[in-house]
Amino acid sequence: MVKTFTVPFEEGLHARPATELVKICQNIQSDVVFKKNDMNVNPKSILGILTLEAKKGDQITVEIQGADEKEAMKKLEDYFTAK
């Protein structure tokens, strides 16, 4: 499954939002890849997320492949669209 989200966080994707994101992704069994421009990273690692340098308003394409991909995408959708 592939979906694109916009970073909603004022400070960009680091700090507390990044920590929450890692926790969500570490509970996903499927393979997850985040893509921004020509970068592909593993969001199950904080370093991976920080590498993206994702600012507020940037678009991130999320690719999930595996048994729990549907529930996983829902969780990430909630994460990016909450509040």
Partner: peptide, 17 residues
Amino acid sequence: SGSLHLKLLAKLSRKLM
């Protein structure tokens, strides 16, 4: 602006991987 902060973290993180 927020971006310098984020840029430094990103550059360092790429190396630290």
